[in-house]
Design a protein around this nucleic acid. Structure first.
Lengths: 205, 205, 205, 205
DNA sequence: AATGAATGAGCGTTCATTCAT
DNA sequence: TATGAATGAACGCTCATTCAT
């Protein structure tokens, strides 16, 4: 039993270290030898833990989708106003820019191989997307899914612009702008249903 | 009397047909044989027109970056209000969703191979990005580059969400929302300098 | 616990077996698949031991240049007279005719690819040639380099004639003739400096 | 009829120009495109005159074998003594060193492809070799075929040494040495049969 | 006669994967 | 468990050859 734990734990460690490797070269361009080398193991060992390159990549995709959002979200809590929330979001994006770019590389790569993995994509990604949307709803303090999608898309887009080398974009500035826009938009368009959210009361303070 | 072929024109035709192929499988995963087959030529012919796979891909990237925006922009003209402009943008995105997703796949792929191509990326893409930003500025009728980047990122994000299979996003709905947000935001924050733009007067009507 | 293989030794074994293969078809006409098949390994294995076809060929050329001459020379020792030495040389050439022809094929091939290998050729071959010239000087028992070159060229020519199919040439007969010619020529032209060589005393007996 | 003459003549011109090309890279390493380019024609034209690469090479080999020796030999005539003849030979070799090296490259290349060409080799080369041996006999003024082979081999060897880069060899010096050796050797060993040759009388003068 | 575009088998080489140790 | 040698199908690319003009 403890053996299995070790095996499983080591597998996860290897998987984590694969993140950068796949992000840098892409599924189609990295080789198992390069991965093994990057992990500091032999190809034999790599195949001992993962049945194939495809399986390794899918497990990685699965893994990064299932990553816990709670610690991330914790960083965003504590804001008193929407504006503060957005500014916190901006700082959070700046701090994790590199990670998000890599995440994006990997996920897009994964999407491109939509053969038999359609199902996995459907199940895992949909779920992930919902979690992100939920996180944004919580952050905004509203339930409007269109608005949540709006913010989600905007954030995706910020990262995408950075990914392809546009360094004229400033996450902080952009998120602040989003904050301002939401601040002037929301009070006029939100149907306050029942009790106010913590966020709304924050807004009014 | 050689076989009469307009070498340059045929090269461009082949290049155009490569767009879908590279978008579907990615640079690292598609093979020259597959490309040749997809184009309906032999590998020999493919190499007669392109010196290498990498050169073919770079020419494709160059090509799609240099594509004319004017016809695209023409579709967006004629709107009287910002809201109408945004709605036109939404319809435009819906109409060209497939194209933009493929464009994104290819460009991200290109960015991932940033070895000696850094320069090309810098020169070509930067320019392209500027043209897009300019187009958005024109569409909005403002000069604020932060705002233009905001809209650009948002649009990028919409496409990215669609790319990875999120079909709960509705371009029309999202662009309408953007329109509404801009409509309430702009009058309060834009310093109208000198004569009003056509757009601004439309707003006031 | 890796598979136990003495990498370096196995590499040498493969290299040795390449000798005949390259000699028979020539560098430009033999394929790596044919070589692999000839060696009884897969192409993958071949590339595991040699980085490229060119490197393989260069290592082979290097190898055959560095081969020990001492055993060969030992066969030629023990002759009491110049005539006997030359007759021993003739028998030696007959015995190794096949080997020398192959050696010649390979070396000529190597010389034809004198691009960046000029240096290797210069260093390795020159050295080899000097060793051969030295061996001939020892055999003749004289220091005259012009004479040594004469004999060397003659021997080269004998092999070359055999290489291109002239089977009217008889190594024994030719070497005997060389012996006779040297025997009548040398006493009249050699300045005996100091003590006589073993060979000279043999001549006089 | 005149058309055919032109065709045939042009074919020969092309063939002549191939000499250097094949000598420089070797049959297996030169491509038909490179040959065409070297000749200043298209591949189509090349194939119009020669049915295949192999046929082209064989025709070249045939051609250079059949080349007239008479002009060459004329250069060697006029010597009064054997020594003079050998010195003339030395100068002749120096003058044509480049040509002979190329000739050797090509012929060795041809010999290496001894599949179905064995016959051609047998017939054409044997004949050629006999002509050379005859030329040498004439030059020496003797009929001894062993001696002729000796000289032929020696000359071959001189060229071979030069081919593989040995530039310490001096054709003039070597041929002079050969002259001296023959001069001391011949009078003692030649059975003068019947009338003296022109050469012998020269020797005695 | 002459061109060069087109072909596809085959080249040198790589790579995911297997296997003996 | 861990290694890296071994495999051979398949990769990017080339080349002798054919063919439409």
């Amino acid at each position: 039993m403890p053996k299995i734990v070790d095996h499983e734990q080591y597998r996860k460690e290897l998987l984590d270290k694969c993140f950068d490797l796949f992000a840098q070269k892409g599924y189609g361009s990295i080789t198992m030898r390069q991965i093994a080398e990057g992990l500091g193991v032999s190809t034999g060992t790599l195949y001992h833990y993962f049945p194939s390159k495809q399986a390794l990549f899918e497990q990685l995709a699965q893994e990064i989708c299932e990553q816990d959002l709670s610690t991330a979200l914790a960083e965003l809590e504590g804001a008193q106003t929407l504006q503060e929330s957005m500014e916190a979001l901006g700082r959070y994006l700046v701090r994790n820019e590199d990670y998000f770019i890599k995440w994006t590389y990997i996920w897009i790569d994964f999407c491109q191989h939509k053969d038999s993995k359609e199902m996995l994509k459907k199940s895992v990604f949909k779920q992930t997307n919902q979690r992100y949307q939920k996180a944004i709803s919580d952050l905004l303090g509203i339930q409007d899914s269109v608005l949540a999608s709006f913010v989600l898309s905007f954030v995706d887009g910020l990262i995408l612009e950075k990914l392809w080398g546009n360094d004229t974009i400033d996450f902080i500035e952009q998120c602040a702008l989003l904050g301002k826009m939401l601040t002037v938009y929301l009070p006029q368009h939100t149907v306050v249903s029942g009790s106010k959210t913590a966020f709304m009361s924050g807004l009014e303070s």
